[in-house]
Amino acid sequence: MKKIIYLTTAFILLSISLFEGLVIALMVYTFYLIAKGELRAYGRLFKPLLLHAFPTLLSTVLYTPNQIGKAIERSLFLLIYPLSGKEKLGYEFFKRFNQLLVFAGFLLIPVVLYKFYKDGLPAPVWGGVFEVGFLYTFFSISALAMFLFTKRKIYFILFLIFMCFVFLSMRRSAVMGLLFTMLLILYLLRGMVSRKFMIATLSSIAFVSLIALGVFVQKDPRFYTITEVILGQKALNEETLNLISSIRWSIFKTGLEVIKRDLSEGNYIPLLIGHGINSGYYLEPKSPVGGTYESVFLLSEFIEKGLLGLLGILWLWWTYYSYMLKLKIEKKEDILLIPSLSFLSTLLIGGIFTMFWDAMLPWMLLVFRASEKQLESP
């Protein structure tokens, strides 16, 4: 299992195509082990993931069959989650895992800066600004955990540097995910770290955030418009709402029309299981941005996956955060589990105004299950 997590992590950093090929193999392997009785479908997130997977796959088969590949990717791929609960990996593994992520974050800095200099946008080995935002969120959290575990100042310096790269991506989803998850981590550490450390960490986050906000206001029309609205220089109307939200206001209104049409025409099966992946290409009124009605996840996921799929996501939210809020890190070694436990939070919070999906989500679920297993009683 250690080799599998190391390999998936390496592929996440180097090639999403290789990663997805590996996930296909792991999906087959997981189902094979479950069928043979060698792996139990345990883990508190498995049932919510299963409820989400069923309507995602079924609705796509029925209504948008040419999107079946994406449906498998966004449903069955996530069911590799129980695999990393096959065995406890030990604290030494989690220490090495965090060191690997911190080292990777350091090595990728020249790549990101070069692409920023060359193209005007930061990017890692694959992907673009969104991947920079999420990867450096992971690197930041791992660096902070290693600082808390070792007390070595270099890790805290790297934590601040990595956090700057999250803001450099200028992706609101990544920034939201990082800031909320940092507060969650401080809550988990409430019984272990001093008030002085909490104040220092919160002050550092606030300082970097203020600098980033100043840059955003100067460089990003969305933040500049927010400032104008707050100062009373512009009215809050549909035009400014669309600019601030990257036209999500118009997308939201269009999505509501789709649901109203389903209700008026009695389309109860799509209301239950959704219209399928990327149904925005085919529905009326069509999505202003292509395949999805990406505005607020409650609406966009309901259109694609119906009531059942949305309930699966909400169930996962409830299960995950109720588990995290009950945890209290009191043993020093458990600090090493914090990154693996909290990566999923960055996606859930970051996905509030996007969708419950990212190519790296199967990996986040694998590492969460591994840390969840580590915390289980012998």
Rank of each mutant, 00 (worst) to 15 (best):
I338F: 09
L83S: 08
F31I: 07
L160K: 11
L186D: 10
A10F: 15
E265M: 10
V129Y: 05
I338C: 04
E257T: 09
L57P: 00
V289N: 06
E228P: 01
L186M: 13
S371V: 12
A145F: 06
L299N: 00
I157R: 13
A206H: 09
L202M: 14
S140Y: 05
G350V: 02
I211P: 02
Q374L: 11
K95Q: 08
V132Y: 00
K47G: 10
F223P: 03
P65E: 09
L327I: 11
N237Q: 14
L58D: 01
T8A: 14
V102C: 03
G177E: 05
S340Q: 11
L158M: 14
K219C: 03
F159E: 04
M1D: 13
F46I: 09
S173P: 01
L51F: 05
E38A: 11
L299Y: 03
K373A: 13
G43W: 03
G290Q: 12
L189M: 15
Y268A: 00
L316K: 04
Y117T: 13
L101A: 01
V258G: 03
M182S: 07
S371A: 15
Y29D: 01
F252W: 02
L299A: 10
L184Q: 04
M176F: 09
W249R: 13
L113K: 12
T8S: 14
L13N: 06
R172H: 01
L183K: 05
G232F: 08
S209A: 15
Y114C: 09
K3T: 14
S295H: 02
S300Y: 05
L325S: 07
E294Q: 14
V193S: 06
V111N: 03
T227M: 10
I259C: 05
I12V: 15
F167M: 10
F216Y: 14
G191A: 12
K118P: 00
I244E: 05
S279Y: 13
I230N: 12
G120P: 04
L22G: 00
F167N: 03
A41L: 15
G105V: 03
L184W: 00
S204V: 08
G255S: 13
V166C: 11
E330N: 11
M355F: 10
N242E: 12
K118H: 13
M198H: 08
Y42Q: 14
T60E: 05
L361S: 05
Y323E: 10
F77S: 02
M27L: 12
S203H: 08
L366P: 00
M27F: 13
P378A: 13
F252L: 09
L45G: 08
I68H: 00
G350E: 01
Q99V: 07
